[in-house]
Design a protein around this nucleic acid. Structure first.
Length: 271
DNA sequence: CTAACTCCCTGATAGC
DNA sequence: TGCTATCAGGGAGTTA
C-alpha cells in the first residue's frame, strides 16, 4: 500500500516521465474514486504541458503550465503507470491522460480509495485542497520539540498522534509501527505522557526509517508497484509490522487495534 | 478544541 | 470444490 516513501518514488518517476509532455486527450472510465472523476473531462486539460511532479504528504502533485495541478492519491491500491496504447486497458484503470509522445499516464485503483483531481495552486505552492495539513516528517520543522508540543494535552495513543495528518503528514500504519518499535515506545502510550527524550527518539526514527524506505523504493505489501512496475524492497526490512516474534528479544509480538488499524508491537521492548 | 466512531471498496485468504 | 465471512487501509465526515 503506498505510503510516503512510495508516493516519493512515484513522484520522482513521474517528474522524469511527465516533464515537458503535453496532454493530448483525457479519458475517464469510471465516474468516481474517493472523489468524482468526471470533472477531469471538463477541465480543459488538452494542450496543457506538465512542468514538474513533487510529493506532498502521500500525494503526487503534477504541475501544469497554467498553474493548475494534477493531484493524485493512491489510497490502498492505486497504481500509476506511463506506458503506450499497445497495452490493453486493465480492468480497474479509471483515468487515461494521453501524452504528446504517444504514451499514456494511466491510473489504476481496484479499491477506489485513491483520488485523481485537478486543483488550483494555493499561495503556498501546493494544492488548495491540501491547505492546513500538517508538517512534512522530513522537514526540519518536525523535530523533538515539535512533537513534544504537539503531544501536550493529547490523551490519544501516540501511534494515532503520529498518524494524524493534521499534525505530521504521510506516516501510515506500517511506518508508524516500525518507528515506535525502533524508538522503544509502545503504540498504546498516551501522547501526553511522552517525555521530551522519547519525542526526540520517535522523530529521529521516523526520519531514519522514511529515508531508508525511500532509498529502498518503498514497501511492497500486496498492492504497491512503482511507476516502472518494480516492487518496493523495504518490505525485507520490516521488523515488527505483521510479525509474530520480536526480532530483538524473541518474545511474542502483540497486536492491538488503534484508530481502526491493527498495530503490532513488542510488549517487552516497547514501554 | 479532542476523541471516537462510520463509511467507502475489492481481492486475498480463512473456514466450513 | 464452492460458498460465505473477515480483513486490510487513508481520509473525510459526523457526533458527542
Amino acid at each position: 500500500m503506498p505510503e510516503l516513501p512510495e508516493a516519493e518514488s512515484i513522484s520522482r518517476a513521474l517528474d522524469k516521465a511527465l516533464k515537458g509532455r503535453r496532454i493530448t486527450k483525457v479519458e475517464v472510465f469510471f465516474p468516481r474514486l474517493r472523489t468524482p472523476l468526471l470533472p477531469l473531462l471538463k477541465a480543459g486539460l488538452e494542450g496543457r504541458k506538465f512542468v514538474s511532479c513533487r510529493r506532498r504528504a502521500r500525494y503526487a502533485v503534477a504541475e501544469l503550465d497554467d498553474g493548475r495541478q494534477v493531484v493524485m492519491h493512491f489510497g490502498m491500491s492505486g497504481v500509476v503507470r506511463v506506458e503506450g496504447a499497445e497495452v490493453p486497458r486493465r480492468k480497474h484503470e479509471h483515468v487515461f491522460l494521453h501524452l504528446d509522445n504517444g504514451k499514456i499516464l494511466r491510473f489504476e485503483d481496484p479499491r477506489r480509495f485513491g483520488s485523481f483531481e485537478v486543483q488550483r495552486k494555493g499561495k503556498d505552492g501546493w494544492p488548495e485542497s491540501l491547505a492546513g495539513i500538517g508538517v512534512e516528517p522530513l522537514d526540519r520543522r518536525f523535530d523533538g520539540n515539535f512533537l513534544y508540543e504537539a503531544s501536550r494535552g493529547r490523551k490519544k495513543p501516540v501511534k494515532e498522534l503520529i498518524m494524524d495528518n493534521a499534525v505530521v503528514t504521510g506516516i501510515g500504519n506500517i511506518y508508524a509501527a516500525e518507528t515506535l518499535f525502533a524508538a522503544g515506545v509502545s503504540p498504546l502510550r498516551q501522547a501526553c505522557a511522552l517525555s521530551p527524550a522519547e519525542c526526540l527518539s520517535i522523530v529521529r526514527e521516523v526520519k531514519r526509517i522514511l529515508r531508508l524506505a525511500i532509498k529502498w523504493g518503498g514497501t511492497t505489501v500486496s498492492d504497491f508497484k512503482n511507476v516502472d512496475g518494480s516492487e518496493g524492497r523495504f518490505v525485507q526490512k520490516l521488523k515488527i509490522y505483521g510479525k509474530k516474534t520480536c526480532p530483538r528479544c524473541g518474545g511474542k509480538v502483540a497486536t492491538a487495534v488503534l484508530g481502526g488499524r491493527t498495530s503490532w508491537y513488542c510488549p517487552a521492548c516497547q514501554k
